[in-house]
Amino acid sequence: MIRLEHVCKTFHEGTPEAFEALRDISLHVAASEMVILKGISGSGKSTLLSIIGALSKPSSGSVIVGNQSVAKLSDLHASHYRRDTLGFIFQSFNLFEELSVEDNVALPLIHAPITHDEAATRINAALERAHIAHKRKVRAALLSGGEKQRCAIARALASDPKVLLCDEPTANLDSQNARAFCDNLLELRALGKTIIVATHDPIFETLEGVRVVPIVSGRIDS
């Protein structure tokens, strides 16, 4: 599903401030697999996630998701790739506080080439799957932390992505909500989603059937 070969990323290349964030990363992730990128802050796991998500480009190496060479996409195709293939879940939820849960979940579908009815079906399915359907009309600002993260999950699922990328998704959750979030991810994996989580939360290591990939100083620590 996802193949990274010799990926390197250097920030401020060619300047005295040059910083190697990723060094020769090779990683294969199978379809329906859940991979935990584990590392301390600054280890490069979020950079790796942003490269898989076509939010930034590597300095060298190749990134293949499905049959697409993600690292080589133009802006237009990268946008289509993110819209059609990926769902993102962020540490700080990144919800529009003034919009309702339902409207937040509908956002990724605005430019999707689907009918209004199909969009409504997908929104309902995503809300159900993230266990937040009962709050669909509530403004995001009025949700608890756990509910906000479930809303973020529903938004990530709205476009029915093949791949879910989660960046420190439990950092703002208490242990009970973090556990609920992990259970939710396991359900999604069972539905065939490929999931990559960048985190330093040890709770993910306790999950069954996940692969933990430690990242240290921009390298995969074998």
Binding site: E5, C8, K57, S59, S60, S62, A71
Partner: peptide, 9 residues
């Protein structure tokens, strides 16, 4: 996929 090609892009 070399650094030179990415730099050229």
């Amino acid at each position: 996929t070399s650094p030179r090609q990415y730099a050229l892009e």
